[in-house]
Amino acid sequence: MAIISYREALRAAMRDELKRDENVVIMGEEVAQFNGAYKITEGLLKEFGPKRVVDTPISEAGFIGLGIGASMLGIRPVMELMFWSFSYVAFDQIVNNAGNIRYMSGGLINCPIVIRGPANGGTNVGATHSHTPEAILASHPGIKVVCPATPYDAKGLLKAAIRDNDPVYVMENTILYNDKGEVPDEDYIVPIGVADIKREGTDLTIVAHGRAVITSLKAAEILEKEHGVSVEVVDLRSIRPLDEETILASVRKTHRALLVEENKPFCGVDAQVAYLIQARAFDELDAPIGRVSSIDAPQIYSKKLEDLQLPYPARVVEAALKVLA
């Protein structure tokens, strides 16, 4: 078991799958000669050549749509978006075409495409480059969305996504790219739709995904050390499909729930999770469900304020104490 970064884990997943299946093609802006804007695809052009690792023009609607069309004929494109924020100019392709084609054809056509890239704030780049569209996209039946928080999950989920026969959108986080963790060298997948208990506890359940998991784990440490509270952290890993049973089992154990995400609050992922808990575990709750999201404004440029806009450990601790009160 090697200790590698989240970035290297994503690269290892793509390398494995490029070797395993000749129909896998990596495509995106700067993925080949430039070695990737965030160096995720570094070295893949050299190893696999220009047929398998393809630079595209800055033309998201065009090249994402091209990948969707190619996937209908059995190619398995892994498309990099430099930022998921750029998906907005390709929205018709991503939602109407990839998300609807199976349904509208009565099951005659599949779209086994993967679109991956970072979807996060916190990098001091302003509102246009800081969108977190996992809730927006997961609200469309036909689409799958995953948000890995650790190197292990990044590799396993990306490999599962590439083998999946439906469109899977992988939302990463640039702030996590250098995080390191244990990742097996051998072949494995993390099944899509299976949440992971990242920390066991008995007093409070925190449900999170993406970098909010890391933030929540830090908050859990503080809560234990400074307040003597035992917190369980459930990492959703996948937004759609959603592992409802793991969430509910944890809430039935702790009887209190705090939901943490980096989305803005309105119709965020946690709106769905909160509905789920009240619908199926209402009698188990000892307190109203708590929630921490980004402060509800377009992402601010100012670094100092952006760090306050996103959930951070102290804010999670404060919200947790309210749920525990």
Binding site: R102, Y103, S105, G106, G107, N110, P112, P141, G142, K144, A160, R163, D164, N165, D166, I189, P191, I192, G193, V194, A195, S238, R240, P241, L242, D243, E244, E245
Partner: peptide, 19 residues
């Protein structure tokens, strides 16, 4: 006919959970 996976559930399924 929303998801291939749902229409073709089997031991090789790469996903589970509520979809």
């Amino acid at each position: 006919h929303i998801y291939w996976e749902e229409d073709n559930r089997g031991k090789n399924s790469t996903s589970s959970g509520t979809i």
